[in-house]
Design a protein around this nucleic acid. Structure first.
Lengths: 152, 152
DNA sequence: CAGAACTTCTGGACTCAGTCAAGAGTTTGA
DNA sequence: TCAAACTCTTGACTGAGTCCAGAAGTTCTG
């Protein structure tokens, strides 16, 4: 949880491809070129929108339909292989860091998004004061502010 | 922080109307019947969507345009008289509890939303580990889970 | 390695939340 | 009271995301 952020795009990598394939299979999803390309794109471009991911995938494998991108992103998010975040006023964005309880810092001016490690330890934010009988599985934290550029 | 939630709708109340008017004036906004009705509606129906608020206001004052509702909600949120929240997969929702650093508990099944007081004290969540030079003004926390009804 | 069964992809139409623009109407402050 | 400034209405529009049905691809069984 205090690991480095690993935000830099990662090179196309056979070992990673392999791992993507294993992730798909062990989640009961079929393995297709489109899905592998989408997973690679999410890893390469963290916080990208569905549209941006579509662009990236088209550059990589030639063509893909919008529907296939939405279907795949939805399926991957369902299986918790990727995470969907949706700041107010912005289309949904996707990232591959899952299960490490990190949060996001969003600029009110330019919508720039940064990852932030949890300030208060391991999974403190999962401890709600009164859970109303809910079975809580995730706490999503978004910090709002202005980035250095937009403060001027 | 262990107070009751005060989520039950409040009756139409001249004293509250008065206060709405003062809030508008001191924020430099003009006072109109539409705006008062919208503020009342946000108070009466916490976590309502723009569309639901439009319905409530129409019941109250006869008619209002969708645009007026969006303009007013935007202006009120700008002035921090109300707060806009937008859980993933749901249209924007509005509430009148501002400035008390409370959070939200959302059901993945039925989208039911509860208010939750901050678990960790006053404004702990405004303390990000690394602020990347941002000027942070708000931390938004959403707990995701399943309500008692949807767990079955 | 074939064929069947199942899953995924494509393309197009569609829905829904929200925005833009221009003109009419209302509120405010001198 | 009157002009300036602000707000509301109407209607068209945008952009993200969904629905549908048929075509194509993948996996399983023998």
């Amino acid at each position: 949880m205090t690991d480095a952020l690993e935000q830099e795009p990662q090179a196309h990598d056979p070992i990673e491809q392999q791992s993507f394939e294993q992730q798909l299979r062990s989640s009961g999803l079929q393995v297709t070129a489109q899905r592998l390309a989408i997973m690679q794109a999410v890893t390469d471009g963290p916080h990208a929108t569905a549209e941006e991911l579509t662009e990236i995938v088209r550059d990589k494998i030639g063509s893909i339909s919008r529907q296939a991108v939405y279907d795949t992103l939805g399926a991957l998010a369902d299986k918790r292989l990727i995470r969907r975040i949706q700041p107010t006023g912005s289309p949904a964005r996707f990232e591959d860091r899952v299960g490490d309880n990190h949060h996001h810092l969003v600029c009110r001016g330019c919508s720039l998004i940064f990852d932030i490690d949890c300030a208060v330890g391991t999974t403190p934010c999962l401890t709600a004061d009164d859970d109303h009988g809910f079975e809580i599985d995730e706490a999503e934290v978004v910090y709002w502010g202005r980035c250095p550029d937009c403060r001027t």
